[in-house]
């Protein structure tokens, strides 16, 4: 049984396994850090791939959690037609439902406007 676990790039997470010697190996990967009391931080896809090569032996696979910037739903990168050229290391993307709407450009900017305005105040 393989367990899938969603993680976010740049956001610390714990690994629900006893790592032992593997710990050193994992933090040795370029793009992987360990922050005390918070957990591992992965910066990008290639680091995640390297980490998965180790974790799969323990029955765990990490999948990046990329959310739709507009609606907040899972982007489902595996279904994306650009999956062959996408590095999947962005903080967010746009889901296919939102993408298919006529007014996606306007909705994108509107969402961002709201977000930035919040930061301003």
């Amino acid at each position: 049984m393989v367990q899938y676990m969603k993680i976010r790039y740049g956001v610390p997470f714990q690994i629900p396994r006893r790592l032992g010697d593997r710990f050193k190996e994992i933090v040795g990967i370029k793009g992987v850090r360990y922050v005390r009391q918070q957990g591992f931080v992965v910066s990008d896809k290639s680091a995640l791939d390297a980490m998965n090569r180790i974790l799969i032996k323990m029955g765990l696979i990490l999948v990046p959690d990329i959310r739709c910037f507009i609606c907040g739903m899972d982007v489902e990168c595996d279904e994306c037609s650009y999956k062959d050229v996408c590095k999947r290391d962005a903080g967010s993307c746009i889901c296919s439902t939102c993408m298919s709407r006529e007014d996606v450009v306007k909705r994108y900017y509107d969402t961002q406007r709201t977000m930035l305005d919040q930061a301003l105040h």
Partner: peptide, 8 residues
């Protein structure tokens, strides 16, 4: 900063 995704 990250590269833009294809959809972006």
């Amino acid at each position: 900063f990250k590269p833009l995704t294809p959809r972006q």
